[in-house]
């Protein structure tokens, strides 16, 4: 085995498992997130709730701002580029980002093609609503998957829908006869080998996190019990009343997601949660970007 970047990049995602990745917009927030037990931070200029409120075109963050966060913490730093915007990704690789999120939260730059992620040395995480999307992104070189959920809403319903759909498709493929896999590969528009991997291992070939709308320790525990290997929390922390306390509580909820008694303690007295908007109330469904 040579120095295989895809393997090494998958391996970094394995180290993040059981952890919480938090959106931060300043070095100060990054330090709060690290102190609260985040296993990585996502550096971005505006958290999804504010992107949603501001409207307009939303792009990769200023590299200077990202570097400020890289210097502030010792944990891995991720950043977002627009779907299909390989030049933004090249820039993020040039500043040695630890993970790039090719994200539907930003305005897509290409309505047909995603980035050819096999051309990069840094790892990519991509969002997916179902198994087909997940495997298509992996085929393009993504070394980590997250549910799309509906970012910036504080409403977990879509993350739940996406995770349940993925898990049930994985179970369905796991129980198929071998000769049925060819047709499934055709339907999902993915290579046979990836379907075969899912059939054999009953899981994705890369780590799978929950993202989009997670706002409370209970939300995080719900996603973990549904099969997530860790969670991203975006607007849920720094849009809430007491970010330090809420962040630390979500970290502990992810570690002990099956202990309801502990979850009850963790859920106590967290101050105000982000207000949130219901999926019926929003006009822009970010999850529909990029398929």
């Amino acid at each position: 085995m040579e120095n295989n970047r895809f393997e090494l990049n998958k391996n970094l995602a394995q180290m993040l498992k059981g952890g919480v990745i938090m959106d931060v917009t300043t070095p100060e927030q990054a330090k709060i997130a690290e102190a609260a037990g985040a296993c990585a931070v996502m550096a971005l200029e505006r958290i999804p709730a504010d992107i949603r409120a501001a409207g307009g075109v939303s792009r990769m963050s200023d590299p200077k701002m990202i570097k400020g966060i890289q210097n502030a913490v010792s944990i891995p730093v991720m950043a977002k580029c627009r779907i299909g915007h390989f030049a933004e990704a090249q820039i993020l690789q040039a500043i040695e980002i630890d993970y790039i999120d090719e994200s539907e939260v930003l305005s897509p730059a290409d309505d047909k093609y995603h980035i050819d992620k096999t051309k990069f040395d840094v790892p990519f995480v991509c969002g997916a609503k179902d198994l087909g999307e997940a495997l298509r992104r992996i085929n393009e070189g993504a070394s980590m998957i997250r549910t799309k959920g509906e970012p910036g809403t504080g409403d977990v319903v879509q993350a739940v829908r996406h995770m349940r759909l993925m898990q049930s498709e994985i179970r369905r493929i796991g129980s198929m006869a071998e000769d049925e896999l060819f047709d499934t590969a055709k339907q999902l528009q993915v290579p046979y080998e990836l379907v075969q991997y899912v059939h054999e291992h009953k899981k994705l070939p890369v780590v799978n996190f929950a993202a989009g709308g997670v706002a409370t320790p209970a939300d995080a525990a719900l996603m973990m019990q549904l099969g997530a290997e860790g969670v991203f929390v975006g607007s849920g922390i720094f849009k809430s009343g007491n970010p330090e306390k809420r962040a630390a509580a979500i970290v502990k909820a992810v570690t002990n997601f099956n202990d309801a008694k502990l979850l009850a303690e963790l859920s106590e007295d967290l101050g105000e949660a982000m207000v949130g908007i219901n999926e019926q109330e929003i006009e822009l469904l970010m999850a529909e970007r990029g398929k």
Partner: peptide
Amino acid sequence: PGGESTVQGKLVREL
């Protein structure tokens, strides 16, 4: 195991 030492170090104390 491997992971983030800051996270594990914090949780091992707080738990």
